[in-house]
Amino acid sequence: MATRDTTEPTNQPAVSTDEVVDWKTKLRYFLNSDFVRSSPYWGIPFVIMGIAVYGGIGYNLVISFTDYNGLEPPTFSSLDLEMYRTALASEAFREAAINNFVLLISFTAISLILGLFLAILLDHGIRYKNKVQTIYLLPMALSFVVTAQLWLWMFNPDSGVLTIIVTTFGFDPVDWLGNPQLALPAVIFALVWQFSGYAMVVYLAGLQSIPDDQFEAAKVDGASTIRTYLRIIVPQLKESSVSAAVVLMVFALKAFTFLYSLVGQYRPPNGTDILATLMVRQAFKFGKWAYGAAIATMLLLLALSVIAPYLAYQYRQGSL
């Protein structure tokens, strides 16, 4: 007992100074660590980006729970899901969501198929390949605003190029954008024109990473070109397909600008309303900010449902 009493007070400070030293060295190590030393480099952009992207998303979510309509500052006392219920019950929202899915799936699928076709075509010992590729990709350098004007003229029912093509084949002129049944396919056609070059570039890069001996082996085996591609090459392009598809889908979700610029007003041609146009119209035209925020949140969820599996896939592949 007595010894313990005497040893304890002497030990105590020793232990605690040890701990202090430990703590101090730890802090010094920490401050000298690459994490802290490099933090100004990644930290500053991270904070700017974080506030804009994640702060924005968070605040948007909060607004979507209020009844904010721009007349008085939003009140955060009573938060509920009313805006989401209204949206899900509304006919306009459902129509926009369906159009959105149709646009997303068909635009992505057609662009991928056309892009793959063009990539294989150009990968086949075409002369001036790089120049041709540059031209195929050219629409990609243009703004949605510009391409919308070009296609507005192409689709013009009186003297647009497509009308002339249709009438030379003996059909009646078609009001592409004025007919609710045809407007969405017409928009998809224009978007495919703009973005299939992108899919082509991604596929070309993928094709070039496939070793040549596979082509040669298939040739020696007497496999036809089409069979070689379908059986051997295309399955190896899975990674290119996935990443091109994700980027294309995100483009499709951003198609707002194209639709707005077609008509220069909030309401796009009948039959082409998508979530993005509906959201901007509700928020910025009618001042239903909370309602717009709720639609935006659902649009975000749609985008995340595409991105999250993609990132998980990339992570598993070790290519993140």
Binding site: F46, A52, G56, V246, V280, G292, L320
Partner: peptide
């Protein structure tokens, strides 16, 4: 980095009101 990467794909409509 994953947080940066998600930022690439976020539809801007989701931050317009804020």
């Amino acid at each position: 980095f994953a947080l940066f990467l998600v930022g690439v794909f976020v539809p801007y409509q989701a931050v317009l009101v804020p």
